[in-house]
Simulated assay, not measured.
Amino acid sequence: MDNRSGPYADEDVDEEKITRCKESRLQDPLVVCGSDIMLMILSRLDARSLASTLGVSRRWRSVASSDIIWYKKCEELWSGKAHLPRFLQTEGLSQLSAYSLSVQGGKRDAPEYWRNLDPYWTGAEDGPMHRYFHPDGSQTADSNDQVWGGHESCYSIVTSFLADGKIRKHYVRINRWPRMHISRREDWGWEMSNHLYCYSSVPDARIKGGTGPCLPIL
């Protein structure tokens, strides 16, 4: 019978504590903490670190691939993007798959058909592409514009005010694009731009209701 008495009793107890401590360290954190707590821990990781935990085990993957976590990662990734891939509308697509496919899609270059048609890519002297902003919030393009696909279909003017009635923010939003700010050029023309796109007004005196000058601007 071991009554833990004698000069070596404390040493035996210490060894048992050390053994238990080592065993606890070797245990799977998912087993120790449980799925709910691990879900909270993993949600604080960045996307790259979170993805690295998917290969630990099947149990880890079931937690690390949760839509609850990747939904927030997708929101962070998509924030401020001008276009979102159409496959995101696929029914039943997991948030992890949506994130992975979005990253892959974001690395693609401009498609060949676009490079062959857009004057910016071809260096053609046909002049810039025209986009027409109508009072009803719709947009159109020239009938012979091969690039126009209807994706720039609507726009809205957003204005917010302070308590004293002064304008706080005033900008234009095209579909889901980042907000576009309006500025005046030295030739009294208008420019609407953000970090992705830029629209410049052109003389339109020959168009009914136009406000541009008849003479060319030098």
Rank of each mutant, 00 (worst) to 15 (best):
M1P: 15
D2C: 02
R4C: 14
R4P: 00
S5H: 11
S5F: 15
G6Y: 07
P7N: 05
D10E: 14
E11P: 00
D12Q: 11
D12Y: 11
D14I: 11
E15R: 00
R20E: 02
R20P: 00
K22C: 11
S24R: 14
L26T: 02
L26S: 11
Q27L: 11
P29Q: 09
C33H: 06
S35G: 06
S35P: 14
L39P: 01
M40Y: 14
L42R: 02
L42H: 03
S43F: 08
D46E: 14
A47F: 11
A47I: 09
R48I: 11
S49A: 09
S49M: 02
A51N: 09
T53E: 10
S57L: 07
R58E: 09
W60S: 00
S62P: 01
S62D: 12
A64S: 14
D67H: 07
I68P: 00
W70Q: 01
Y71P: 00
Y71I: 03
W78H: 03
W78C: 07
G80T: 05
K81W: 07
A82Y: 11
P85C: 03
R86N: 10
R86K: 13
L88E: 07
L88C: 05
Q89Y: 10
L93N: 00
S94A: 01
L96R: 04
A98K: 12
S100L: 14
V103R: 15
Q104P: 03
G105M: 04
K107P: 01
R108W: 07
R108E: 15
D109N: 14
A110E: 13
W114A: 11
R115H: 04
N116W: 13
W121Q: 07
G123L: 01
A124G: 12
E125I: 02
P128R: 04
R131N: 06
Y132H: 09
H134Q: 13
P135Y: 11
G137S: 08
S138R: 12
S138F: 06
T140I: 01
A141Q: 10
A141E: 09
D142C: 07
S143I: 14
W148D: 11
G149P: 02
G150F: 10
G150M: 04
E152I: 01
E152W: 15
C154I: 08
I157K: 12
I157V: 13
V158F: 10
S160W: 03
S160E: 15
W177N: 09
P178R: 00
P178W: 01
P178Y: 06
M180S: 06
S183P: 05
D187I: 04
W188M: 13
W188A: 13
E191Q: 15
E191P: 01
E191V: 10
N194C: 07
C198W: 07
Y199G: 02
S200A: 10
S200I: 13
V202H: 05
P203A: 03
A205H: 13
R206N: 06
R206H: 15
I207T: 09
I207G: 02
G209S: 05
G209M: 04
G210V: 06
G210R: 07
G212L: 04
C214A: 13
P216W: 03
I217R: 15
